[in-house]
Design a protein around this nucleic acid. Sequence first.
DNA 1: GCTGCCTCTGATAGCGCTAACATACCATCC
DNA 2: GGATGGTATGTTAGCGCTATCAGAGGCAGC
Lengths: 342, 342
Amino acid sequence: MGDVSVAKNWRLPVMGDVARLAGVSHMTVSRVLNEPDSVRPETRERVLLAIEQLGYRRNSAARSLVTRRSQTLGVVCFDTTHHGPASMLNGIVHATEEAGYAVSVASLRRLTADAATQAVQRLVHQSVEGLVLIAPQAVEAMAFVRALPTTLAVVAVENALPTVTSVSVDQVLGARLATEHLLSLGHETVHHVRGPADWSEANGRVEGWMTALEANGRPVPRELAGDWSAASGYAAGRKLARDPRVTAVFAANDSMALGVLRALLEAGVRVPEDVSVVGFDDFPEAAYVTPPLTTVSQPFREVGRQSIEILLGEVEGGAARGASAVIPPELVVRASTAARRR
Amino acid sequence: MGDVSVAKNWRLPVMGDVARLAGVSHMTVSRVLNEPDSVRPETRERVLLAIEQLGYRRNSAARSLVTRRSQTLGVVCFDTTHHGPASMLNGIVHATEEAGYAVSVASLRRLTADAATQAVQRLVHQSVEGLVLIAPQAVEAMAFVRALPTTLAVVAVENALPTVTSVSVDQVLGARLATEHLLSLGHETVHHVRGPADWSEANGRVEGWMTALEANGRPVPRELAGDWSAASGYAAGRKLARDPRVTAVFAANDSMALGVLRALLEAGVRVPEDVSVVGFDDFPEAAYVTPPLTTVSQPFREVGRQSIEILLGEVEGGAARGASAVIPPELVVRASTAARRR
DNA sequence: GCTGCCTCTGATAGCGCTAACATACCATCC
DNA sequence: GGATGGTATGTTAGCGCTATCAGAGGCAGC
C-alpha cells in the first residue's frame, strides 16, 4: 500500500508515474494490467512493484472513455423497504459484485411511466452496460422499455415484459402449492387476499390459486383486494371473519397474512383450529408470529444470481437475448394451517 | 427524442455532431450545457434543438475524466434484507438521487476488515466523491477508514467512528423511552435482550436501558444476548419465561421482541397481562403482530436525508467536516405493554 | 550475412469532454 | 478615429487511459 498521507495539492498517481518508477513506458504498465502474459515476467514484476509502491489504481473514467465499457450495471427498483424487494436487491447487488461489476441503483418514488423513464434515462446516462428492472409490472408504466437503446441489455425480474428477458419465481406454482396444501387438509375451498393488480406477482398468485381450485372442481370465491400491507390484510381479515363458511385463507404475502391473522384473532376466530392461513414470501419472522405462519418461500438470492448471470451473458456475449428463467418456490408448513374442523 | 432505431455499427452522437448540426463549435455546445447564460439565446435555442434532434447526451466518462468529478456517491452496507438497514439504504438512495448524484452500492458479505476494505477500495476505484457507511461498527473491522484517501468525504450512519462525521438515531434516548415507559407502568425493573456487541446500535440501546434503570434506582438485571434475529429473541424469551420475577422486557429490535413474544406465549405467560414487551424499530408489521407491539420508531428516511445533506456539504463545500447529527426516535405505544399485575 | 519472423516494448493518436486562452465583434468613450 | 472594454464564440491543449502500428532485438534458416 503506497503512502496515503497527503499534501494539500496531491495528485493521485497515474500510469505515467508507475512507468517512470519502473523504468518502462506507460504502455507496458497498461499491458501488465490488461494482458499480463504479453509482458516479460521480469518486467512485469518491476511494474507490479511500482504499482504497489505508489498505490496506483487505474482511473476508471479514462478507461471507460476509451473502452466504451463502464463495468457498471444499473438496477431500477421500487420501495425496497419490504423484505421481498429488499432481498431481491440484495441478491442482485451481491451477484453483480461477484462478477466484478459496479451497481448503480435508481429507486422509483412513484409507479408512473414518467418516473420509470427518468430512472432509466439516469442510468443509461451513467453508461450502465446492462439494466435490471425489479419494478412491478404496471404495464402502462413500463411501456418505456421500448424506448431503451436497443443495444442495452435488460433483464426484468418478476416482470414478464414481452420484449425483455425475465427471471422470476414461479408465482403460479407457489400459489398452487399453497392452495393445494389447504385443500389437502380437507378445506372445501380457499379464500384469497390478493396483491395490487399492477404487480405481476399478485396476478400470478391469483392465477395459481384459481387454477388449483378449478382443477379440483372447487368453487372459486371472490378474491379480496390488498395492497401488500398488513393493514390491508387486516381489513380483508375482518371481512373474512364475518363469514362462517370461510375455513381457509391464502394471502398473497406474509404481511397481509399477518393482518388476516390479527383480524381473525380479534374476531375470536381461532387459527388454525377454525381457519387456516397461508402466506407468501417466508419473511424472516414468519416462524415466530402467532401462530407460526405456513407460507411459500421465495429463493430471492437465486433470482438475483440468475438475473445477473443472464444479464452478463447478454452484455458480454453480444446482442443475443438470453432465455428467460423461472425458479420454483417452496411451501413451508408451520402452524397456521390444520385439517378442517369448523 | 432522436431516432432510436439503429444500424449495426451506430455511433452515439457526440458533442461535435451537435455542433455541426447547429452550426457552432463544440465548445458552444458545452457552454449551452454547462453555463447556458453565457450563450446568446438565439444560439442556445439552435443548439438545444440540435441536441433534441440527435437525442444527444453527454458522455459521463469523458466528463468525469476532465472534471475529476463522478457525480456518484458510494454506499457501503451490510445485510440490507432486514427492515432497518433496508429502509436506511432506501432513504439514502432517494436523497442521493434527489441531489442529482448516482448511487453505487457495495454490500459486505462478512463483517471483516478485509471485506470492508475491499468494498471501499472498489468504490474509491469507481471515483465516488463521497462515501456513506451503513455498516455496523465492528470497531476492529472499521479501522480501514483511516486508510481512506483523506480527500474523500465520508459519513457514517449509526456508527460513531472517531474521525468521521456521523448521522445517527439517538439510540440511547430510544432505549430510555422504552425503559421508562415500562417503569412508569409500575414494573420494578426491565430485562433487556440486547443486539450483537459489534453494532453500535446495540450498545447504545444497552446504555439507554441501563441509564434509565440507574436513574430510577432500579436493579439492573443481567442482559441477554441476541443477534437481531427472531430466533435469538425466542431463545432469550424461553429463559425469561422461566423466571417469575420478570415482568417487563425490552428487546433491542422488533424481530427479537417477536421471538420473545412467541416464547412467552408457548410458556403460557400472557402478554401484556403477565409480562410487558417493548421492541425497537417499528417495522411495518409491528401493529399487527399478537399482541400489537409497543416499540420505538426510527426515522430512517430522515437519517438518509441528513446523511446525504451533510455528505454533499462536505463534497461540494470543500474539505470541512460537517457536524454530526443525532436524530430522536419516538416511542409508539401499542398493546404489548400494560401496568404490572403479576 | 542477410532475410524472415518471431517476441517484447515504445511512440503516437485518439476516446469525448472541459479549461484556458485567443479572437472577432460591437458598443463606448474621449 | 483609435484606444478600451465587454460579450459571444472559436481554437487548442490536455484529462488518463487503450489501440494501433512501428521498431528493436533475438533466433532460425539458407
